[in-house]
């Protein structure tokens, strides 16, 4: 079979650069990047780093939309750089910026400490009803029980939903879409009994009621987790929890 020679096309990529030792505020830098049909935006950045400017900083790892490292604003929309092809953005100028709503550490790298704190606060692991020993065997679960939370467990912590959430941008105390989706994920898991520990975070002022149902978080989620749904279900749950306590005899709530 003869090889088909494809002449690479060239796309103009503007990258928001921020080198704290050099710039007071981020500035756009343009690069002319030759590309072939099989190249992702991430590969475009790798070309820049390898061939044009080695000082460019960005996070990446798996190249296949699994690790969630390469989230960035691509033409103003939060996306995984590995999951979008340069050919689909050609012709025209492509603008790449660090994920919105997070402080920029350097170039396309954001400070994600805030999310990490929230993630640990919601205890993103199974808190079992009863601790079982190995001899007691595994925690069994039916396919139906798995189906209840499976979609929510697909979250890869890529933070695209936070970059899509104006409420988080306006008030970073808001616990946010991904953390709330994970709370819901464990709440629906038949093996978990940790909801009582997690729910105070959900019902707090920085919890679900900061959400105004913009819904863009679910639009941009690369894993179809639908965090907006998780947040909004818990608004109803929170209201129920608040009002039902008046109907219960004293001491009925744990």
């Amino acid at each position: 079979m003869s090889q088909v020679k494809v002449k690479p096309r060239t796309i103009r990529i503007e990258v928001l650069r921020y080198r704290p030792e050099q710039e007071q505020a981020p500035v756009l830098q343009a690069f002319e990047v030759p590309f072939t049909d099989d190249m992702s935006v991430l590969q475009g950045l790798q070309y820049i780093k390898d061939e044009l400017d080695g000082t460019l900083s960005y996070r990446w790892s798996c190249r296949m939309a699994i690790c969630g490292s390469c989230g960035m604003m691509i033409n103003g929309v939060p996306k995984l750089a590995c999951s979008i092809f340069l050919r689909d953005l050609y012709p025209g100028t492509l603008r790449i910026e660090a994920l919105a709503h997070f402080p920029i550490e350097r170039d396309l790298v954001v400070v994600m400490d805030d999310f990490m704190t929230k993630l640990s606060l919601i205890k993103p692991y199974i808190i079992p009803k009863e601790v079982r020993t190995l001899s007691q065997g595994e925690y069994l679960q039916t396919p139906q029980q798995l189906a209840r939370y499976e979609q929510l467990s697909s979250c890869i912590n890529c933070l695209l939903c936070y970059a899509a959430c104006p409420q988080f941008g306006l008030n970073s105390d808001f616990i946010g879409p991904a953390a709330m989706a994970l709370v819901q994920r464990y709440k629906l898991d038949s093996r978990d009994a940790g909801s009582a520990q997690r729910m105070p975070l959900v019902y707090a002022e920085e919890g679900v009621f900061n959400c105004t149902a913009v819904g863009y978080c679910s639009e941009v989620c690369p894993k179809d987790v639908d965090p907006a749904n998780a947040v909004n279900i818990n608004k109803t749950e929170s209201a129920k929890d608040y009002f039902l306590r008046f109907l219960q005899p004293k001491g009925a709530q744990a």
Binding site: Y18, P26, I104, G169
Partner: peptide, 10 residues
């Protein structure tokens, strides 16, 4: 620390 995280305006 030379870190100087930049916050963008909303």
């Amino acid at each position: 620390s030379l870190r100087r995280p930049y916050r963008r305006s909303m």
